[in-house]
Amino acid sequence: MADNQRIHGKIELRRAIATSAFTMIALVAVIGLFSLFSIWSINRAWTTGTLEAAELQNLSRAALDSQVNFKVQIQEWKNVLLRGDQSSLLEKHLTSFRSSAQKTDEGLVRVSAGAAKLGFKDEAQRALVLSNEHGVLTARYEAALAEERGMSKTITPDMASLIDKSVRGVDRVLESGIGKLSADIAMISDERRNTLLIQMQDRYVKLRLFILCVIGLSLVITAYVLASALRATRS
């Protein structure tokens, strides 16, 4: 009878150890798989978010570059009027004026396309509107120059004065609009980055809490199984 009890106790102990081992393996597997998935998910979200924020910063810089190129364009326009009494200088500054105008427009088009690709429709539309306004304004400059210049190879001071009066101050609203677009896109980028940091911290806290809970649960289950086995061996 005593031998049977010892045999039964050993069987119960082995069963308890096997159950405990299986439970621990299962819980470790759950922790491992969930942790791997969580790490992959966090890494993917972080990579996607940082790339988006970086691209927004690039678009902000592109808009800022457009603003700078527009300022250069306006400065070259002033040079056209100030130095247009010499044909060589007139053509030099007029060429630079047109080159800066092209760079300004290319930058705005890039911002519009990039913002649309990232899903920022409002900013894409604003950049497109600014590009159209810039085209109209540049054409206005060219028309004012052509109207007064005619077939002349130079511009007299009187011509320059009349041209200046016809377009004076028309660049201010556009320049301000391009600058504001750059600042707004930069602000969106900063907001997205801050939101991403908060989300990553929240995910980390949740993952850590889950792992600690599973570890605690596994220890409780193991202790319960071993306690049951010990009771069985004593009976």
Rank of each mutant, 00 (worst) to 15 (best):
Met1Trp: 00
Met1Cys: 00
Asp3His: 06
Asp3Trp: 03
Asp3Met: 04
Arg6Phe: 03
Arg6Ser: 03
Gly9Trp: 03
Ile11Gln: 08
Glu12Trp: 01
Arg14Trp: 06
Ile17Ser: 04
Thr19Met: 13
Ala21Asp: 09
Ala26Thr: 12
Ile31Asn: 07
Leu33Thr: 10
Leu36Met: 14
Leu36Gln: 10
Arg44Asp: 13
Trp46Ala: 15
Ser60Cys: 09
Ala63Glu: 09
Ala63Ser: 14
Gln67Arg: 12
Gln75Arg: 08
Glu76His: 13
Trp77Asn: 01
Leu81Ala: 07
Ser88Val: 13
Ser96Val: 08
Arg98Ile: 03
Thr104Tyr: 02
Gly114Asp: 08
Ala116Asn: 11
Ala124Met: 04
Gln125Trp: 00
Val129Ile: 10
His134Gln: 05
Gly135Leu: 02
Val136Cys: 00
Leu137Ser: 00
Ala144Glu: 07
Ala144Lys: 02
Met151Pro: 00
Val167His: 03
Arg168Gln: 10
Val170Glu: 10
Val173Cys: 00
Val173Leu: 05
Gly177Gln: 09
Ile178Tyr: 04
Ile178Leu: 05
Lys180Asp: 09
Lys180His: 03
Asp184Phe: 07
Asp184Cys: 06
Ala186Gly: 09
Ile188Asn: 06
Arg193Ser: 15
Ile198Gly: 02
Gln199Leu: 12
Arg203Asn: 14
Arg203Phe: 11
Lys206Val: 13
Lys206Cys: 01
Leu217Val: 10
Val220Gln: 01
Ile221Tyr: 08
Val225Lys: 09
Ala227Ile: 08
Ala227Lys: 07
Ala232Arg: 08
Ala232Ser: 14
